[in-house]
Simulated assay, not measured.
Amino acid sequence: MNASTDIVTDDITPLSAVPTTDTAAVPPSDARSHFAWIDIRGTAGDVRAALVQAAIHHRIDGIVSDDADILSDLPPTVRRVLAVGALSVDPDVAARVDIVLADHTGDDVSPIVDAGPAAEAGVHVAVSDADTLRHACETVRRAPWTLLTFTDPTKIPLEIVIAAAENSGGATVTVVNDIEDAGIVKLVLEHGSDGLLLAPRNADDVATLADVIRPGADHIELGELTVTKVEHIGMGERACIDTCSLLAKDEGCLIGSFSTGMFLSCSETHPLPYMPTRPFRWNAGAVHSYVLVPDNRTRYVSELQAGQPILAVRSTGEVREVRIGRVKIERRPLISVTATTSDGRVVNVIAQDDWHVRLLGPGGSVNNVTDLKPGDKLLGHAPPESRHVGLPITEFCDER
């Protein structure tokens, strides 16, 4: 039956009992951890010292150098990576480092450096054509560590190497040109390269690189909200948020009139009698509403724009970052839903006054806003802080 042309009356009543385990069409969240190395070859004096200290302070995983003396002075919290030109190295030198990294040369398929008993073996492959791409794919299946340099800006060769490395047991480290490139490489084929290698210009680059590989908030505390009042309040502007991702049936965005309490809205992933589902959209709320975005910030829904990040939150509290494709603001009848948190705070959300707009409840239950009544339970997030320009702040703030 075509939902866009036929009225599916059987879908209307049981929506609150729709199971939330069917997420086959939705990509899993990125739970994979990444690490970063910095390359200090070609640096000296105060610059090198500043980079090393920044790497230690920001818990960068490894430092690459061609000087074993420099590496041997590093603390054990940093992986010492010695770059060499040959496929064998003096055992006494190898004993002072953690990884011996040799360049791939010649036509042999994936030669592995002889690092001796004390260090692990690594191979650096520069991918510039089909032959070197083949060498890279062979290397990642055999070497404990593979450093990859790609001469062309396309990420297709990296995708191929990552696919070849699947379940190999080794780690891939990709040379990145700058911080922006690092953010892209991290996400190639969803989980990206295991590690990133950057030759930083200064200590600030090291700090920013650490932020790129640091996992974002992957869980948020949700609690029950008890509905106390539902009012039809007339016309106003509301926003739909279309994302660049497919959303799960129990996945929504956190939105509300007050910064100290937000409701978990529902994505348009459930059947509608007059139109197809739109599993990329939240019919979010009125234009004044706060919406939760990364870095524990809020924004007004009317300020959101295409390309910006927003947090997608599941009924379990699992969080991922998705990108906005567009925000559509239109004039519609509005409904006001007021509720209380478990500690007695009053919270509110204003949404489009229509049956197909839904809020999520405990267990991922789906609740049409026009069917809500006092006593109903919904899911939400009630942070203790107030907000100033979207940032949490501990100060007196009375929102009504």
Rank of each mutant, 00 (worst) to 15 (best):
S110V: 05
S110A: 15
S110G: 15
S110T: 08
P111T: 06
I112S: 00
I112D: 02
V113L: 09
V113Q: 07
V113T: 14
V113H: 08
A115Y: 09
G116D: 08
G116C: 07
G116P: 06
P117I: 09
P117A: 10
P117R: 09
P117Q: 08
P117C: 08
A118F: 12
A119S: 14
A119M: 10
A119I: 10
E120F: 07
E120N: 10
A121S: 15
A121N: 09
G122Q: 11
G122L: 07
V123W: 02
V123A: 06
V125M: 12
V125S: 10
V125Q: 12
V125K: 13
A126D: 10
A126Y: 03
A126T: 15
A126W: 03
A126N: 06
V127Y: 06
V127P: 04
S128I: 06
D129L: 08
A130V: 09
D131R: 14
L133C: 11
L133G: 10
R134V: 02
A136N: 12
C137I: 09
C137Y: 03
C137G: 09
E138T: 02
E138I: 00
T139M: 04
T139C: 05
T139G: 02
T139Y: 03
V140E: 11
V140G: 10
R141N: 03
R141M: 06
R142Y: 01
R142E: 05
A143C: 12
A143L: 02
A143T: 06
P144I: 01
W145E: 02
W145A: 00
W145H: 08
W145S: 00
T146R: 02
T146F: 00
T146Y: 00
L147T: 04
L147R: 14
L148Y: 06
T149R: 14
T149E: 12
T149I: 01
F150Q: 02
F150E: 03
T151S: 10
D152R: 13
D152M: 02
D152G: 07
P153Y: 05
T154F: 01
T154D: 15
K155A: 02
I156S: 10
P157M: 04
P157G: 07
L158C: 05
L158V: 04
I160N: 11
I160T: 15
I160S: 13
I162C: 05
A163D: 13
A163P: 00
A164C: 06
A164W: 08
A165W: 01
A165L: 01
A165E: 03
E166N: 07
E166P: 00
E166Y: 07
E166H: 11
N167I: 02
S168H: 05
A171S: 11
A171I: 00
T172M: 06
V173P: 00
T174S: 14
V175H: 05
V175F: 00
V175M: 04
V176A: 10
N177Y: 02
N177G: 09
N177E: 14
N177C: 04
N177A: 15
N177T: 14
D178W: 11
D178P: 01
I179E: 03
I179D: 03
I179K: 03
I179A: 05
E180F: 07
E180D: 14
E180C: 01
A182P: 01
G183A: 11
G183N: 13
G183P: 05
I184R: 14
V185W: 04
V185M: 08
V185D: 07
V185S: 06
V185A: 11
K186D: 04
L187I: 04
L187V: 07
L189P: 01
L189C: 13
L189T: 14
E190C: 02
E190D: 14
E190Y: 04
H191R: 14
H191P: 01
